[in-house]
């Protein structure tokens, strides 16, 4: 199964953290720090795999890929295929790209819950759910429709950026 999906920027700041086996936040951040420690020491144009037995215990594998300023990281075990995970990562990024039209780091920063929703349509409980990005986009669109219709019932929608800091 897939154990974790992590997106962080090249400074090591996490942008998305999803563990499929419960970890305390402290542990999560500790793990991310160790992953970042390994990631930033990697040269360019090398393979996308890292041995992470020391971080996640035996049987753990990790693939990562750099997209602009972001590292996308999948941690999984022997039940998954390494190359398939890279494909899945591509699906995830494509979907993000479609949902945010030319996704950039800021989109992911400011759309915390939407990114989670997208991920939830691709991976469920650590298993691959959907591998077609257009299907995912459809599902996410439906979800936000649900959110919109119900939020229109609310009296006062919050207006982003309206209040000063």
């Amino acid at each position: 199964m897939i154990r974790a999906v992590i997106v962080m920027n090249d400074q090591g700041k996490p942008r998305l953290i999803k563990f499929y086996q419960y970890q305390t936040v402290e542990k999560q951040h500790e793990l991310i720090r160790s992953i970042y420690g390994v990631l930033c020491s990697r040269a360019e144009n090398v393979s996308n795999f890292i041995k992470v037995d020391s971080i996640f215990g035996p049987d753990a594998r990790l693939v990562y890929k750099t997209y602009a300023t972001l590292y996308f990281v999948f941690v999984f075990d022997s039940s998954e295929n390494e190359l398939a995970m890279l494909d899945l990562m591509q699906v995830f990024v494509e979907t993000l790209d479609k949902c945010f039209s030319n996704v950039c780091e800021l989109d992911i920063v400011f759309n915390f819950n939407k990114v989670h929703a997208i991920l939830d349509e691709i991976i469920l409980g650590g298993q691959v759910l959907e591998t077609s990005s257009s299907e995912v986009v459809k599902a996410v669109a439906e979800l936000s429709k649900l959110e919109r219709t119900s939020s229109s019932v609310m009296l006062i929608p919050s207006i982003p950026g309206w209040h000063g800091r």
Binding site: V109, I156, P160, H163
Partner: peptide, 12 residues
């Protein structure tokens, strides 16, 4: 409720 900070505000 009127002047609540949104997530965007928080992130900024």
């Amino acid at each position: 409720s009127l002047f609540q900070r949104t997530l965007d505000d928080l992130i900024k």
